[in-house]
Design a protein around this nucleic acid. Structure first.
Lengths: 256, 256
DNA sequence: CGGATTATTGACGCTTTTCAAATGCAGTGG
DNA sequence: CCACTGCATTTGAAAAGCGTCAATAATCCG
């Protein structure tokens, strides 16, 4: 249930069994949500903190002219709204991009944890700082790289985040449930351009689709093309390394 | 010395006199730094947390091709690197844009405060979440708005941040020490385009320069033009309101 | 006053957007 | 099984926004 979260946190610190247990006990209920439904809306202050167990979600804002700007993708192990332990209202909304399995943690359980459990408090603060760091990188990505490198960069990030949460057995792929429209809204480029750029990445042999799974054909070349430096994800090299090594091997041996 | 910081925090919670005192005692030394100098570099783990007392700084990253991407401006009251209380290395650099007066807080003082002083711990977590929220808005700004609105949006934010830290007596202005190059690096547009867009804002009577001070001529119109919604700054309306009201009045009475 | 930044202007080209239409694809009901 | 429907993907052509290059003016500072 919360393995994706604990796997992710393990990249930063060593959780004791009792910390994990205490987290597990905080889960009060589990809900299923349909694609397109909102989990939390801007200006709300929800009573529960939501953890994604299965499926993808996104943080987004609507602009005056009706355009939707996606500011983050959420995958299993991501928490939607710890902000709410500190802030008095959401400054953005969160919705389901696919059907979602969600764990609900009562806000007071989180607040108790901030007071009583130093390890878990640090862990949650850490996820928050990593999100901030990720936003910085998304900003740099959007302002400084052309659309094709931008998209490649996103794929690099998503692959490593799937490694960190140990969501896939094979290191060269991850599920890609997004439509090109949903990709476009997160890259800040038009749907038409997204389509063309995506074709280019495929034509150049960097990535490939197998149904709704994205396969990285050449990790080294994709990273280089995107100017991807994973520092900002704050993962500990030695803990993610196994995955990375196997995919490096895979990338060079598969040729192409 | 730390008034700008405490003023800013007061927008979120009520600090007791003893909390302020405990913060004040954490300041171990004060340094002056020249414009252009780095305060912290990427990958470092500094022993001190740095607070800006006077002057402007910025967070930035360099790209492969040598371009500098500015990801945040830091003004008095802003803390450069609380990240470091949790993370093991900086994922970006921080440098001085103007001559800077900096307060140094030993890292262990911050860590002690996280353990012992619940109020201050919340306060620091709050600043971190607001920075995250601001990064989201910068991302939306960069990906979804044309260059002129983007620049207008930045000016709106900087004005309100100066209100929040009570840095200016007059509510319609703030110091603008940045060169157009430094503006361009933060907006993700070229220097030439920045120049043209800035001229447009002046020609349209939205802003004006008085030496190195930026004057907002029509706050209501600037906000509307930029599609600026201050929710993301998480300031409490009633505490900033005095400033905002006076500038609304100012904006409409000055005509133009 | 002189050298060095910083601000401004013009011309041209490329990336990306917009509009519009076509094609493919999955689910539904007859 | 097939037509129908709605959504996602793909393609083309023209226009807009913005970047680059290159040169000139203004400003700052010692």
């Amino acid at each position: 249930m919360i393995e994706a979260l604990t796997n992710k946190l393990a990249n930063y610190l060593d959780l004791e069994q009792e910390d994990i247990q205490s987290l597990r006990e905080s889960v009060q209920q589990v809900e299923h949500i349909e694609a397109g439904q909102d989990i939390i809306r801007v200006d709300e202050k929800p009573e529960y903190v939501h953890l994604i167990v299965e499926g993808w979600g996104c943080r987004y804002k609507y602009l005056e002219d009706g355009k939707r700007a996606i500011v983050a993708y959420l995958i299993p192990g991501d928490v939607c709204d710890i902000h709410i332990a500190m802030l008095d209202h959401m400054d953005h909304s969160v919705s389901a991009l696919t059907p979602l399995k969600l764990a609900y943690l009562p806000r007071e359980a989180i607040e108790r944890c901030f007071r009583d459990n130093h390890t878990l408090a640090r862990a949650f603060f850490w996820t928050s700082l990593v999100e901030e760091s990720t936003m910085r990188e998304w900003f740099v990505n959007a302002t400084s790289r052309p659309a094709d490198k931008r998209l490649a960069h996103l794929f690099c990030e998503l692959l490593m985040r799937h490694w960190a949460a140990k969501l896939e057995r094979r290191a060269d792929r991850f599920p890609m449930p997004l439509t090109q429209n949903e990709l476009a809204d997160a890259m800040g480029i038009s749907l038409v351009h997204t389509n063309r750029v995506l074709q280019r990445l495929r034509r150049d042999g960097l990535v490939e689709f197998e149904g709704r799974t994205l396969i990285v054909l050449d990790w080294a070349r994709l990273k280089a093309f995107a100017d991807f430096n994973p520092t900002y994800l704050h993962l500990q090299e030695d803990k993610v390394w196994a995955g990375e090594r196997s995919v490096e091997a895979l990338g060079s041996s598969s040729g192409r």
